[in-house]
Design a protein around this nucleic acid. Sequence first.
DNA 1: TTGTAGGCGTTATCAA
DNA 2: TTGATAACGCCTACAA
Lengths: 337, 337
Amino acid sequence: MASIRDVARLAQVSTATVVRVLNGGATVSPARTERVMKAVAELDYVTNGVAASLSRGSTRLLGLLVSDIANPFTAQVARGLEDEAVRHGYQVLIASSDFDREREAAMLASFARRTVDAVALLSADGATESVSRLVRSGMPTVFVDRRPPNTPAIPLVRTDSLSAAREAVRYLIGLGHTDLGMICGPVSMPTAAQRAAGFREACAEAGLVVRPECLREGFLGTEGGYAAMCEVLDLPRRPTAVFSFNNMLAIGALRAVRERGVRIPADLSLVTFDDMELFPFVDPPLTAIAQPAYEIGAEAGRVLFDLLENGADAERPDVVLSTELRIRESCAPVGGV
Amino acid sequence: MASIRDVARLAQVSTATVVRVLNGGATVSPARTERVMKAVAELDYVTNGVAASLSRGSTRLLGLLVSDIANPFTAQVARGLEDEAVRHGYQVLIASSDFDREREAAMLASFARRTVDAVALLSADGATESVSRLVRSGMPTVFVDRRPPNTPAIPLVRTDSLSAAREAVRYLIGLGHTDLGMICGPVSMPTAAQRAAGFREACAEAGLVVRPECLREGFLGTEGGYAAMCEVLDLPRRPTAVFSFNNMLAIGALRAVRERGVRIPADLSLVTFDDMELFPFVDPPLTAIAQPAYEIGAEAGRVLFDLLENGADAERPDVVLSTELRIRESCAPVGGV
DNA sequence: TTGTAGGCGTTATCAA
DNA sequence: TTGATAACGCCTACAA
């Protein structure tokens, strides 16, 4: 494997000149430039990025911590971040925590060891201790989607979960529903707490009481959605409409619904946070709150590069992207239609 | 930022001893071990992985080139690969080519520069030149899902596209269909060629003629699926059953179908390669060929570590994982039912 | 069991 | 415009 010294030798210049030619910026005489280029071609020389990173003190790597890259929302965010990274000559190192606090901590530790230049955090609960250690170490960091409680002042890119949830539930109430349910993630997740709050607020402002057994908290993944929806459906008195915390829960919920022969929207109306490409084709087409996942990722990238270029001193208000309630056919006026 | 020398100084040992304690393996006296640990804790010392990589000549990084990490199949593969990587103390650097040959080449070049230890290739057409350069450089490499034509002998993890496609089409034929169509990716993609071949073989063995205008090739992405399906549906004589190259095309196809008010399966039967979690809930539930995406990724990881540990000399037959035709309700006997 | 010292390949400083 | 050279921080012979 040819090194920069080999190139320098073959081109009869100093290594400094090779660097100047390769990395641009400086001025090198045309003759030498050409000699260098020829030597590079001849030797199949490729810069060793590891050595370059060590020397320059920057890896041009962004770390992205997620719960599961296989979640479509997450993957879209990752793609948005990647595209923004590539525009800056960076790449993204993705790590899935798999909802496991230990693995999450381990992944953050590798980010630190690998000295990625900055980190975007979109994980289950951002295990407080490891996150704050990372932040204390001075790593430029951005939270995506949610900011764990008791966290230092770190920028956040998100949507407005609370009002989006409230809007969706208002829509349900507008349809005449008075007995609503929600299947929700663990309230330790800020988004879960916020969406539950939105649900509650909408009910409260309409003077509806939320039966505690109708708000099932603490579920994640399709399995969780299935379990939560089963609990709701098996209630002696079933709510007539259910609001789902996210796409994964909704998928699980659909399974529970189908299994019990419950008809949507005749027997039960359903709205969920997070839209998916297939929702319009589901039976029935699912009404959902769409989040601009790709944009969220791209925006997170912009924040990170801003941090990298301008330092973390300035105050940075949350970046709040807007959601859209896409009304399809999974909700009907109460009593069927 | 504390370095290993700071730790050594504080612990009153040599840097070699620090390394021994931190990386294990060697024997260090309990007294010194403890002093080192204390110093590490006191200084908040974290190994600089970049320096370690440079010195050791290994980054413990796997590169994964995909067309688009936002594709659910791809994301699952990535997850499988990541889990296998983590078991070996590795991480995965994912790069999306976005179906762009230039970007693909650029991403492969960064893999080379960053000196990832090995690369898994799951990309549009594996732009031959850049791939073979990578391989020539001695990079341990595995193809995932497909091996581009004219490629050096490199291991491959895949499913049997041809027979899976043939099986699905036979199923269609068994239902009485005699006029079949297929919407397909560009035949420069080996999987597209294979699935088209499977389609043709099944037709041929049943003595059916495939009308050329019924086999639309060259489409990718949901947009492509939409366009291809439009072409098929707008044919003067419409086939009664369509086989879709993959999940993305199928989603686009669904849009075309809906737009034209075509009923599935009454007017048209549909089968697609690649299953999705939501397919059982689509109207109607989609019959699909399921591939073990996660396993494919994990298996690719195993091949890579085998390559890393045992060298590339041994012959490695393709790893062929099995598919499953999941029959649901998107296909009906010809003439409706 | 422990320490010394050289090397990994690039970048950047400082003279010339 | 060029070149020599000292970092960057870790690992690993080799010697003790």
